[in-house]
Nucleic acid binder design. Structure first.
Lengths: 335, 335
DNA sequence: GCCGCCTCTGTAATCGGTTTCATTACGGGA
DNA sequence: TCCCGTAATGAAACCGATTACAGAGGCGGC
């Protein structure tokens, strides 16, 4: 119907001319409809329809001193754990008219260098950091826009945090395994400096203590499938094994169970395995994986909402802790 | 060192004043360094360093009539298959000074509605479509920026395409299975209308014909873990099963193998299984999965480069077909 | 009847760059 | 010596919106 319009589409000026008003009125009609009269509003909206007008975001953002973009920094996009969080973030931002720009911090060090460029008001209106291993210095410079940390956090960076209750989750794991009669429970962790690793380790230790159990073998991993596999190989080589293993995430549990089976060990008969995250895959492994469910979508939603409030200059809670629940499946059994 | 700078950072005007030149010269120094004198360049760069200046992209884009953003539309971010493609796209775009905005078309229909808003020059400079199920009409309007299709494509949309050689891949699968002595080979497909499903089906049929084999059972899936599981249940209920199964992606193969095992069928002894994609997980399943390796990163790199050329008004190849290779692992065996 | 307030609208300044056009200085050829 | 071309730079227009400010008109209160 309007393919005869100029190639690059209509400007606010064109809409204003057709509606017989000024550009200011068009702008007001679109951003604050309440303050224009009913009659004017109709005329403007009709002209918008007719021209297929849509605002030039660069112009708007230049004038409003905003960029319209929120940068989310995730350590690994390939991990399905993050994609649902990003989806939650994206939902909130879209409703607020903001774009989500996703940065994968794992790619290479070159990308990390450029982070300094991006953590800048001239580039984005806010940051959501999902990677606790970044340099806090970048985020404390005066040009850095508001920051919210989700899931992981950076030691020494004081920015609002949204995370699942990792400590309580790890305690639930111990409760479950101890309830099944296990007294020797091993732990496959993430990287030692990672905040998730620390919280889960703390909750795990507290749980053991509460049940009067002594710590058993601790194997350091890095949240990857491969490190789960490596952990299984170490376990198989042990003469005196624990009877249950708590993995700090589902990917490692998956790598671990695969390698265990290949070595002839049966889960849960020879070894019970518990994961953390409840990614979709955990329901399809054999045996299906007992794991802690994290409210991933909710983490994303909360993080984004808090960031928006921060950008608008409102007060926000320092910590938002979301509860987790244990999904008991086939990979854990009694002694 | 420069935390005394004004809260919102330096403007080009500030840099110009400190360097003792005009804003035009600063701009030229940063975008076309060749046309300013050596001496001036040094002074400007020193001033940039001193102020920590970084350009305001909204202003630049407003003047240059570009938005600085490329929108990638993917059907499912949670699928690890896409994340590596996006990573390749992101690398190229970052080097070109463009942002990658990721849209998940699976979220809900509301998001799809808004697609119309986004497929617009006022919103982004180009589109990379990874979802073949979208409405072609959106992309043919005059306001729509250049489009490149990657992996999947939309029937009836003439836009450059970058994809793996799905037909050749499916033929390789048949060669491999026929070579092992299989004569009854089933197929678990993606959605019937999907372009990947069609290509793989065509290659599969051609392979069968070349080996003088008759088609066997075809089970419709949707690329999800759950549909792989459902396919396994159908297979188990059959009295007269094929001896090998080709799954259109690794996720379905994963869901299928898990469910098969739970029903007591052994892979590859009772049934050989082949996947497609070679996601990292396929190496960690038990048994490890024989699958077709797709050059995911390369697909992303090519798609992004082609889009950049398109944006600059250059000629681009209509189709870019990248080759695949078979990764033979444990899930396939002889009869 | 006059004043002040409120509602609605228009004019024009503004955001921060890029780019066109004009200007200057200098070197070489006639 | 004069003219022209070239290299380097500056002044100012421009991109397309938002918004501060001002003005017009209507209405109620004194």
């Amino acid at each position: 119907m309007n393919d005869h319009s100029p190639a690059r589409g209509a400007r606010i000026k064109d809409v204003a001319r057709i509606a017989g008003v000024s550009t200011a009125t068009v702008s007001r009609t679109l951003s604050t409809p309440d303050i224009v009269s009913e009659e004017t509003r109709k005329a403007v909206l009709a002209a918008v329809d007719q021209t297929g007008y849509s605002v030039n975001l660069s112009a708007r953002h230049l004038r409003q001193q905003r960029t319209g973009g929120i940068l989310a920094l995730a350590p690994n996009l390939a991990n399905p754990f993050f994609s649902e969080i990003l989806s939650g973030i994206s939902d909130v931002l879209r409703d607020a008219g903001l774009n989500l720009i996703v940065g994968d911090t794992s790619i290479n060090s070159d990308a990390r260098m450029r982070l300094v460029d991006y953590a800048n008001r001239a580039r984005c209106d806010g940051l959501i950091v999902l990677d606790g291993s970044l340099d806090p210095g970048v985020f404390t410079r005066s040009q850095c826009p508001p920051v919210v940390q989700a899931c992981e956090w950076i030691a020494g960076l004081s920015a609002p945090r949204v995370f699942a209750d990792n400590e309580a989750g790890a305690e639930l794991v111990v409760d479950h395994l101890a309830g099944l009669g296990h007294t020797r429970i091993g732990h496959v962790t993430g990287p030692p400096s990672n905040s998730l690793t620390r919280s889960r380790e703390a909750g795990f230790q507290r749980g053991l203590a509460r049940h009067g159990l002594a710590p058993d073998v601790v194997i350091r991993g890095d949240f990857s499938l491969a490190s789960g596999q490596a952990a299984a190989e170490r376990l198989c080589a042990m003469s005196d094994r624990p009877t249950a293993i708590f993995c700090d995430n589902d990917e490692m549990a998956c790598g671990l169970m695969g390698a265990l089976r290949r070595s002839g060990l049966r889960v849960p008969d020879d070894l019970s395995v518990v994961g953390f995250d409840d990614i979709e895959l955990s329901r399809h492994l054999t045996p299906t994986l007992t794991t802690l469910h994290q409210p991933r979508k909710a983490i994303g939603l909360h993080a984004a909402r808090i960031l928006l409030r921060l950008i608008d200059g409102h007060d926000v809670p320092e910590d938002t802790r979301l509860s987790v629940s244990l999904e008991v499946r086939e990979s854990t059994g009694g002694l």
